[in-house]
């Protein structure tokens, strides 16, 4: 059996004159947590809805385990839509059992799975309540349970962390990690880049409907210019300005942040710094995902 990989292959979509997706291409591998980041309107939701089949692509294909997603294997996806939605007047347990059955579980297994997720997500006291009577946080938990209750083989979650309190963020993170560890490809979008950086195996950055950077955070860093942080207390202002291939990004608290053009030797910078007096700190700067994102999106 081919690996459980979710592949988005050259998917394009327009809404009238608005190009929502242009040749969107990436894959989410088995057991991988894939973070999908991009500004509002970049095309994340559109991509996910196309993968779920609630929206049709103009061209391109979405595959799971090498086969195009059809009505039949779509049942194996767990989906958390950006616009949360459950039956407001249906009880938590009934609702989860119903959704599990609709996804093909026999009644008994549906009950077991629903009870299981209710316990897992701390909803035991609320299992007989109508969804509309729950707090927003608990409604989010039910929504997550609804995405997971049919034991999906793929998870697609649209902004699962938005609106969660710190405790719920931890619960959500743990569940996602656990699902990935069980071999499920997990695709989720988020604006909380620090969280994505901590959690994800790989990250994809979208801009205007296109994937502009995709890989591990470390891989994304190699794409950009190398950065150095130098602390030389006696160095006069402008000490690094004349070095070839070096631009000064910032001077802050006595620390100078420098950007090196490709091929520039950092040892020439160290030599120049030592020439001004003592050097207390000299290190490579690893930009955070937030910084990488800013660079990618603004360039």
């Amino acid at each position: 059996m081919p690996d459980a990989v979710l592949e988005i292959d050259h998917v394009s979509k327009r809404y009238g004159d608005v190009v929502a997706l242009r040749d969107m291409t990436f894959d989410v591998r088995a057991g991988e947590l894939f973070g999908f980041v991009g500004s509002n309107g970049a095309g994340k939701t559109t991509t996910m809805r196309i993968a779920l089949g609630v929206l049709a692509a103009d061209s391109g294909e979405v595959r799971f385990s090498g086969r195009p997603i059809t009505f039949d294997n779509r049942r194996r996806i767990g989906y958390l839509p950006e616009e949360r939605g459950l039956y407001p007047k249906m009880k938590v347990l009934d609702q989860l059992v119903y959704l599990a059955e609709l996804h093909g579980l026999p009644t008994n297994s549906a009950h077991r799975a629903a009870e299981n997720w209710i316990a897992r997500l701390g909803l035991r006291d609320r299992r007989g309540d109508e969804v509309q009577k729950l707090s927003l946080g608990n409604q989010q938990r039910v929504q997550l349970a609804a995405a997971l209750v049919h034991e999906p083989a793929v998870l697609i979650l649209d902004e699962p962390f938005s609106g969660l309190d710190p405790v719920a963020v931890d619960v959500m993170s743990a569940v996602l990690r656990e699902q990935a560890a069980a071999g499920v490809p997990v695709l989720f979008s988020s604006h909380q880049l620090d969280l994505v950086e901590r959690l994800c195996d790989r990250v994809g950055i979208v801009r205007s409907g296109q994937m502009v950077a995709c890989g591990t955070v470390a891989e994304l860093r190699t794409g950009g210019d190398a950065q150095l942080v130098v602390e030389a207390p006696n160095a006069p202002p402008g000490w690094a300005d004349s070095l070839p291939g070096v631009t000064v990004d910032a001077v802050h608290n006595g620390q100078t942040t420098l950007r090196l053009a490709p091929g520039t030797d950092d040892q020439t910078v160290l030599t120049a710094a030592l020439a001004t007096g003592p050097v207390r700190e000299f290190r490579r700067h690893a930009p955070s995902l937030t910084e990488l994102f800013r660079n990618v999106v603004s360039s």
Binding site: R74, P81, L86, Y87
Partner: peptide, 17 residues
Amino acid sequence: VEEKASRVVEILLATVR
């Protein structure tokens, strides 16, 4: 209308025609 208004239709139609 209830299914549309509560957006539950989106999860339903991800698995039901």
